[in-house]
Design a protein around this nucleic acid. Structure first.
Length: 198
DNA sequence: AAAATAAACAACCGCCGTCAG
DNA sequence: CCTGACGGCGGTTGTTTATTT
């Protein structure tokens, strides 16, 4: 299931770009490289580090998983609440929302919201009446290009408070969930990179 | 116990704004 | 001034994992 070697790399260098899930080895390379050289200029970094990845891919991997200060999983009830509140006033400004949740990335928040919050809001969103007979079960978040009510950076307008009632009837995950690991976990990867310090 | 279905998650894609050459 | 590389962002999809039937 590896289609890279077979191709006759006649035209130039075929730029074998890897895609899909990152392997531990790749993670290590990236972590180690950044530990020794720092971030910046991702495309160059990818090449210099010897990774067959695009700069974007490296950046994403680093920012979302490998960075030492990223927190993953186990969204606390407080965080969930914050996500909901911020989303209520800013819409799908994931990156902006993420800035208010230390350690959390926009991608994780986005995933979390879409997979766990959105449906609840929908179901808790009664409005059966309303003079809008059409599209009532529409994900009101899809219309992203309408949430540009920004004023500055702190307090924005637009607080539909539509979540007010929603919050109460929320399942809210248990905070102290099994903090088990998946594989080495980034910490282990970091300790491993110590052995390879340039 | 197995199959079907749903949920969660990781990563990619295209678009856009910025900036250097 | 124009052009292209780069990085950031949000939407979306593919795959894995959990839950239900």
């Amino acid at each position: 299931m590896d289609k890279k070697g077979g191709s006759s790399s006649s035209s130039s260098q075929e730029v074998e770009v890897r895609k899909g899930p990152w392997t531990m080895e790749e993670d290590l390379i990236l972590i180690n490289y950044i530990a020794n050289h720092g971030e910046g200029v991702w495309n160059t970094l990818a090449r210099s580090a010897g990774l067959k990845r695009t700069g974007k891919s490296c950046r994403l991997r680093w920012l979302n998983y490998l960075r030492p200060d990223v927190r993953r999983g186990n969204i606390t009830p407080e965080e969930q609440l914050l996500i909901m509140e911020l989303h209520a006033r800013w819409g799908n400004r994931w990156s902006k929302i993420a800035k208010h949740l230390p350690g959390r990335t926009d991608n994780e928040i986005k995933n979390y919201w879409r997979t766990r919050i959105q449906k609840h809001i929908k179901q808790a969103e009664p409005y059966p009446r309303q003079n809008n007979p059409h599209e009532l079960n529409h994900n009101e978040a899809t219309s992203t290009s309408n949430n540009i009510y920004e004023v500055g950076d702190g307090m924005e307008v637009y607080s539909p408070s539509s979540y007010a009632g929603t919050l109460e009837a929320f399942p809210v995950p248990l905070p102290t969930e099994s903090n088990e690991n998946f594989w080495p976990s980034v910490e282990d990867l970091w300790s491993m990179q110590l052995l390879n310090n340039d």
